[in-house]
Design a binder for these strands. Structure first.
Lengths: 290, 290
DNA sequence: CTTTGCAAG
DNA sequence: CTTGTAAAG
């Protein structure tokens, strides 16, 4: 086996914190793990072995975004898992956007969208309720080339903030998915060159800030407040991933009211199979049998 | 190396005549070879090594059909051959149809189409004139699903017959290309099931018969009048090629007036890289320096 | 660069 | 089944 010849190539690769946390501050071990992955096409992702990776990881809830397929074309490998799959895809264009959620235990309830037919047409929000929390699987709309969809995005962001704020009143919420925004300059390789790029406009960053302000924690930053190069997305163009020229677009937000139950938040940069990598949140919840 | 386990699979594979002919009946050795190949996408064909095969074969004229690319996207490997390339592609839709012709010596003249703007819009006829003959590279229009283009095809066939008849008055003509018709039941695996399939309707077969009647020889049948399974096309669907479930759609027709100069006509079923295989005609012409 | 669907064969 | 494309990211 050959060592990397160019140390510069490795210079900025994110190295996860040496000791992943297993427990809360008061010493309770995690008993609920949510993994989120933008798969960039479910069928291609399964072919590339993404599912095996996820099965080895065995989360309690798995949130998938950009499935790009309707229920009828979900690969057999996923169907045969015998889990409780729930899908949300645009009815007119099932190969665009779309998401899926699997869970080890059957949710108490599953809801689709945010209650606004216009904003819900693209399969971007899926909420599963469990005894101790709700999980919101989300794929925030991209602002598009030339920011052609920025105004739609802004309307969407605002509605989403109200939606999850409402949920948070009754139970803690884990918002897991591709939020399609890099919050801070620290969250992308080239902040100065992307001030008007989709995903780093002040409009999108402000909406994210407001979402946090509504009572949610950016769980990864709770544990790694200033860790650079912790990206979750790399464009396929010009070999961005091997150079770690990326963006942190995927998040697990967690209700501030549940802060004491938060054990860890991780970014799994090694996982291949998509232009995004998975992110995960580790919780120690009351009344979960392990 | 393992022998084929299933002899039934090989049962109907075409085996070329044991001794390819090098000379005319009166003993003159061939000095002019034309190869024709429907490449089903020039760029993919080059990637799959089709060009190497052709270079090893070194024809005097190479006719390619279904190049599916405009002049600007011809692969560098072909450009750098330094030959005399001529192309004919639809201007509005260069990824459809299209053809190219390369020759070892520069043609006296090259013409595009048949002189009818409506029938010539798709890049289906390219004529190169040489001292001793003309070579017509042709890609006859497919009659389409549900025979939706059969009437266009019939108009096209009729015009093409007049066009080549006219050429034949002044010099012998080699009509090389994908004629998109299986002439006789012998020329496809399943004639009974394809009576109304594009490529074996009576309308298309009649037009082919009329083309021969206008003074052209089906050169392959001159030497192999009743050889079965001599196919040049196999659909990519359901592994048709390994079972040799194919059609003879590619031909080298040759002016009856040049009969004495005809040495051989071959179908190269081994050549990979397209759903068609190449066909070639071998001529012994006056005044060709070798 | 890669996914998806599409038209065409 | 494979080619090419376009839209989307």
């Amino acid at each position: 086996m050959e060592l990397c010849r160019d140390p510069a190539q490795l210079r900025d690769l994110y190295v996860p914190p040496p000791r992943p946390r297993d427990t809360t501050e008061d010493g309770r071990r995690f008993n609920f793990k949510v993994t989120s992955w933008n798969v960039d096409g479910l069928r291609a992702w399964v072919k590339k072995g993404g599912l095996e990776r996820v099965q080895a990881d065995a989360p309690d809830v798995l949130c998938l975004q950009e499935t790009k397929c309707g229920a009828e074309s979900v690969p057999e490998e996923l169907r045969s898992l015998g889990a409780f799959p729930h899908q949300h895809s645009p009815s007119d264009q099932p190969s665009y956007s779309g998401m899926g959620l699997l869970s080890r235990t059957k949710p108490l309830a599953v809801t689709y969208g945010m209650g606004d037919p216009e904003l819900d047409a693209e399969g971007r929000v899926l909420t599963a309720e469990f005894p101790a929390l709700r999980v919101v699987c989300v794929y925030v709309p991209n602002s598009g080339r030339g920011l052609g969809r920025l105004s739609f995005r802004q309307a969407w962001d605002e509605r989403f903030c109200s939606f999850v704020s409402q949920l948070d009143r009754s139970k803690p919420v884990a918002i897991c998915g591709d939020l399609n925004v890099a919050h801070q300059p620290l969250d992308l390789r080239n902040p100065s060159g992307n001030k008007r790029s989709p995903g780093f406009t002040w409009e999108e960053r402000k909406a994210f800030r407001e979402l946090l302000g509504a009572g949610f924690l950016d769980s990864f930053r709770v544990f790694n407040p200033s860790l650079p190069n912790a990206f979750t997305f790399w464009t396929y163009l010009s070999g961005a991933r091997v150079r770690n020229v990326g963006w942190r677009l995927d998040y697990c937000l967690w209700s501030q009211r549940g802060r004491k139950d938060l054990c860890d938040s991780r970014i799994e940069q090694r996982a291949q199979g998509s232009d995004h990598c998975p992110v995960g949140i580790y919780l120690a919840l009351e009344g979960i049998r392990t």
